[in-house]
Design a protein around this nucleic acid. Structure first.
Lengths: 221, 221
DNA sequence: TAGATTGTTAATCGATTAACAATC
DNA sequence: TAGATTGTTAATCGATTAACAATC
């Protein structure tokens, strides 16, 4: 299994490769990639090794080849159909991102319990009653589910999805989703990201404070 | 510096503690927390150790004490003012989440270049011209910036924020933000999360396939 | 008391980084 | 050729997990 940090970094490299591809750059070295993302070149090489793409000493990697190698590795070549449960604020923001199809998925329908929303469309994606989801998952052979519902219904929705044959769930709710181990649960929990941000900010301050204190102590001698 | 996985897990525990607090539970053990999140109890104890909260052998931790300990640790007690750059789909979804103040930040103003948006409000948050952002950051002593603009302007916006005195940036664009090391950059890049989801799904399939092949080989003997 | 749980040290595991020969 | 870069093995680092005495 590829380390998660490697998968994330590869997706980052892809953004750069898109730009380089548009610029017509033909070759790129791990030294260059590493400089841009403030990483170790060896790490970039290790990451690329997972994709199976090989480079040429002295010149580096062919930009197009590497780009396609990562796209294939992430399985982003053919976007997979996905169902969105919950057409609230985050749900509709996701529905508006038509370019998710450049990132491996395509939302083809949304589901909600709110009668006022059912029947409406967001960015051409129709909103159905949540009751219809399980049958539609089966009939349309959908393998990816997105949960952007209120937290208290999240586990129930996940169970419905799993029973109907979903293989992977992208979870935007702050709750832990329990699932059998053959199901992939990927959490996009913004509050966890906020936790890292706010904690790191205080840590930076402590750092400064401690240095300050040492300095103070020194000048008081 | 606290390991990032620890910070994220602590934020997860908090969700459980909220529920337990509402239920009136007084004590909670690491065994219970670990079971719910499918973790090792020792890991949970190690995580809690960072907050400085201590438990009692046999009974565990006081729920309220642990809850408040984590809130303090994450610096979520007093939500910090934040500015939002970019009032597009994700930007407005964020602006609608009034409960971000339970997660350490409070969006007090939004900024955009689109003249049609300027002057309007999202969930009572006024949208100003982006030109006004630097001065307002200084005057209002804002320390947290959120970037939800198109990718090509992200670095520029980040520079404006940093020059004006922002300490931490929550980045929703898919680009890498370069910043001095005293600035905290936290990426909430949804596409990276998608990369993990889609890759893990193919890996699960490989797993099955390999097992299948071994099985096939065995029965063919 | 017996048993569950904490707090903490030691062992293990996995990811990152260093070193360096091979190559163009 | 000299120098930059790859590919790969070894060393290091940091996080997780195991072990276990102390405690209520």
């Amino acid at each position: 299994m590829t380390p998660e940090p490697t998968i994330r970094r590869l997706a980052k490299y892809l953004e750069l490769l898109k730009i380089e591809l548009a610029n017509g750059t033909e070759e790129i070295s791990t030294t260059k990639i590493a400089n841009i993302f403030e990483l170790d070149p060896t790490q970039v090489r290790k990451d690329i090794e997972f994709t199976g793409i090989i480079g040429k000493p002295k010149t580096g990697y062919n930009v197009r080849e590497l780009y396609e190698g990562i796209i294939n590795f992430l399985n982003w070549k053919e976007p997979k159909d996905a169902f969105l449960a919950g057409a609230g604020h985050i749900g509709s923001a996701l529905a508006h991102y038509s370019n998710l199809s450049d990132y491996g998925i395509k939302i083809i329908a949304a589901f909600d319990i709110d009668r006022k929303k059912i029947g409406k469309k967001i960015n051409d994606i129709e909103i159905f009653s949540i009751d219809k989801m399980p049958n539609l998952i089966r009939r349309m052979n959908v393998k990816i589910g997105i949960i952007a519902t209120p937290p208290d219904t999240a586990q129930e929705i996940a169970n419905m999805m799993i029973d109907a044959g979903i293989e992977g769930i992208w979870n935007f709710t702050p709750v832990h989703i329990a699932a059998p181990e053959n199901i992939v649960i990927e959490n996009a929990q913004l509050t966890l990201s906020l936790a890292v941000l706010t904690r790191r900010i205080v840590e930076k301050k402590y750092e400064k404070t401690s240095l300050g204190e040492i300095y103070e102590r020194d000048i008081n001698k």
